[in-house]
């Protein structure tokens, strides 16, 4: 039962912080709210028996990506409410569009025919061992390939960020 309450709580937090990310005026606040959202999501991961993933999630997102965000914000000196005034029309249309997307998505998901898991329930799939098996056996190729991705991103980011020698 407590798990159910945990679900509700974490879901509420995730949604609320998510909204705060979007709605806060100050970018730094947004970043912080996003970190909180990530924690809420990490909590969900734990609930879902994906402990390793939860840890990675915190490390990668909260630890790396968000720091990067903060770093950029600081570097570019964006930590103020510098956003120009948005017209009501833009606000309304954004709300309407996102709202209708939500409605449509929910509506199309709602009538779901129950998904019947083919496997026996196994609470251990989220363990490192299982994940490692899958990742380095079945998903070895994508794993290797993602190195190309990261390399490309790295090269690219460096190339863009460095000052061009004129």
């Amino acid at each position: 039962m407590i798990i159910t309450y945990m679900f509700y709580l974490l879901s509420f937090l995730a949604i609320m912080f998510g909204l705060m990310v979007v709605l806060s005026k100050n970018p730094v606040h947004s970043v912080l709210y996003l970190v909180l959202t990530f924690f809420a999501i990490a909590g969900h991961y734990v609930l879902l028996n994906a402990q390793f993933l939860a840890a990675v999630h915190i490390i990668v997102y909260a630890g790396a990506i968000m720091v990067l965000f903060l770093y950029i914000i600081m570097m570019l000196n964006l930590n103020k409410e510098a956003e120009p005034h948005k017209s009501l029309w833009i606000k309304a249309s954004a709300a309407v569009a996102a709202g209708s997307l939500l409605v449509v998505l929910v509506a199309s998901i709602k009538g779901t025919v129950a998904i019947t898991p083919s496997n026996e329930f196994n609470p251990n799939i989220g363990l490192i061992e299982n994940l490692g098996q899958t990742l380095f056996k079945d998903y070895l190729l994508p794993f290797e390939v993602s190195s190309v991705l990261l390399l490309a991103a790295m090269v690219g980011a460096v190339m863009l960020a460095k000052k061009s020698i004129k």
Binding site: P142, V145, S146, L149, A152, G156, L160
Partner: peptide, 23 residues
């Protein structure tokens, strides 16, 4: 997974190259 990675491996360099004329 390959589709997704393929798309991204293609796209990310393209994002960068599109901006390669930095100035």
């Amino acid at each position: 997974a390959m589709l997704f990675l393929g798309i991204e491996i293609l796209s990310i360099p393209m994002y960068i190259l599109a901006g390669s004329n930095k100035s």
